[in-house]
Nucleic acid binder design. Structure first.
Lengths: 197, 197
DNA sequence: GTCTATAATCAGATAGAC
DNA sequence: GTCTATCTGATTATAGAC
């Protein structure tokens, strides 16, 4: 929450919000600048190009999501079972997206559209996060509560795609973010559980 | 397979392939034209604008996917249980995406980036398909094999997001498209099943 | 650190020959 | 039905005043 209200931070916040909502090509510098209370050319005093700005939003989004989920999971104590840890991670991820972190939502939205070179760098930063999910899944398979019939990589890809999607279709109404998060965890974890009907 | 090799069809095929791979903004008319063996301005003899071309690709993608899944499910006969029908639909959807239909993959990739007005029209065309999934889910809940604790809309959204994602991360190798499809069905359907461990 | 020009670029679209 | 040449508009980026 160390939110210095300087120009640079305002630009990043605005860029995250616009990227989340409009996608990469749809996010015009003029609109980002407007959200930061300035005009487009002023951005260049803080960032050398649109690409640099976008990349910083991506890195920040990964960092925030990563930190949020890890702190929720690690806060449970060392004795917690893999399945409970996995559930906590799923709920934390959905909750974080839906309660409005623009940075992590922007990552989910535009990652596939990033230019080749940037995507490689962002992917590298993302890999520690990816490994974290993989470890949770593998740990559940190792202790016998997660199905070994399912491929850990496939489970991780499907899981993340499913969770990331919710920021694009969720609208407040019948169900709260917390309820969506619980349904996601139920749908995935009973499916991933080793004991089958 | 009525594949008339006329210019119009070649342009549509090329557009679907490029849109699938590069996204909406990344799909340049020059590249689409190149894939159709012509130069960019020639496209305008067949389509009044890029938007019209893109919209036609979207409509065709929805139609193809729709027809493919429905024919596989309806081919099972009227006595088939809702859960088995749902499994068939899931497998058919993943299989269709991964065995390379550019049109349906293009829909999954660029739908969120479409301009507002076009997205409304495409969504309207998509709704019959959406309803088809919803009916399958609701039928399984009604006969007691699908969990009533889960919201049918949430299940549908998560399910489609999960399935659609695979065309962006799947690479031939360890697992075949058919195996990915089976894993998706297992993960989702055991999670959706009413009887819980 | 932000502004008012303005340049440079690029992609969609048009005109008209063949 | 496709081409070459060109136009238009939008958007990123720069120059230089304040």
């Amino acid at each position: 929450m160390a939110h210095a209200d300087n120009g640079r931070t305002r630009i990043l916040d605005s860029a995250a919000a616009v990227l989340r909502q409009k996608g990469l090509a749809g996010a015009k510098l003029s609109e980002i600048a407007k959200g930061a209370g300035m005009l487009a050319p002023s951005i260049y005093h803080h960032f050398p190009s649109k690409d640099h700005l976008v990349e910083e939003v991506m890195m920040e989004g990964i960092y925030r999501n990563n930190r949020h989920i890890m702190s929720r999971v690690e806060g449970m104590g060392p004795g917690t079972s893999p399945m409970v840890r996995l559930r906590t991670a799923i709920v934390a991820h959905v909750d974080f997206l839906l309660t409005g972190d623009d940075y992590s939502s922007a990552v989910a939205r535009i990652f596939d559209d990033l230019p080749e070179e940037m995507r490689k760098r962002v992917l590298a930063a993302y890999s520690s996060f990816d490994n974290y999910w993989r470890d949770l899944i593998v740990a559940a398979q190792a202790d016998g509560t997660g199905s070994k019939a399912l491929d850990a990589t496939v489970v991780r890809k499907f899981l993340i795609a499913m969770l990331d999607s919710c920021s694009s279709w969720y609208r407040p109404g019948k169900l709260s973010p917390a309820q969506i998060a619980e349904q996601a965890a139920d749908l995935l974890l009973f499916g991933f559980a080793a004991e089958r009907p």
